[in-house]
Amino acid sequence: MINKTILALIVCVSTAYSQDELAVKIIKTVTEIMSPENMKSIGTQTITTSSGKQRTFEFESYTGGKGESSLTRYTKPASIRGQAFLTLNNANDIWTYFPRTKRVRKLASHAKKQKVQGSDFTYEDMGGGDVFLKKFIPKYLGEENKNEALCWKVELIGIQEEEPPYPRIIMWARKSDYAPVYLDYYDESGFNMKSLSLEDIKDVEGYPTAMKMIMTDHKERSSTSMETLEVTYKWEPPKDFFSERNLQK
């Protein structure tokens, strides 16, 4: 009887251990495929408000250092043409540029949670890098079908000291290639405040790439769709590309 109990305990512990290992492995692989060394893309961003009004922006975007640095510049509409923002250190440092005044403003960390151009994406959401690995503890929740694919389901619990962008995230990543297809973001009270759906995933130069991302804000009942029109990972940033100087070009 005692032997059986010990055996069950060992099985339980080793299963939990292997599940934790699996969760870490999933998040490591997701981070790897979501963080190519460099990227250059052109896309559109369509914001749909709770009342159904829509605004569409066009932008060009560049990332470097596996998402550690990024530069996004709006090209349309005319009212925001040339407005740009630069993020360094995984969006811990943000600068914005306003072409009308020719001024660059450095934003404090509270601004990371601000909406980019009134969209449902925050500056922090736009930052990449290894945020999931550094600021969260992953927990394996099983397998589940999501966005028409069999997925790993992983819970990411924020590490308080690391100041995670959200206290808790649940992520679904395809079993076939570890491409994330859906993320639920929760606030401190456990409310599912936002969801990100990654759709039309295509293989671009060896990286599974979501050509369409829809962020839905469940509290404000608005959504923002980001569509990728052109993308390449073979782009090499010139020296000092991610700089205030280039932000103003």
């Binding site: 360094l88 306003f98 009308r100 005044t101 020719k102 000092d240 991610f242 700089s243 205030e244 100087r245």
Partner: peptide, 22 residues
Amino acid sequence: PSYEQTGVNAIRALLQLGDRSS
């Protein structure tokens, strides 16, 4: 305060000295 300003006649040289220095 954020209204655009008029231009000034100038020659301006900006030398980049690394990611965050100029």
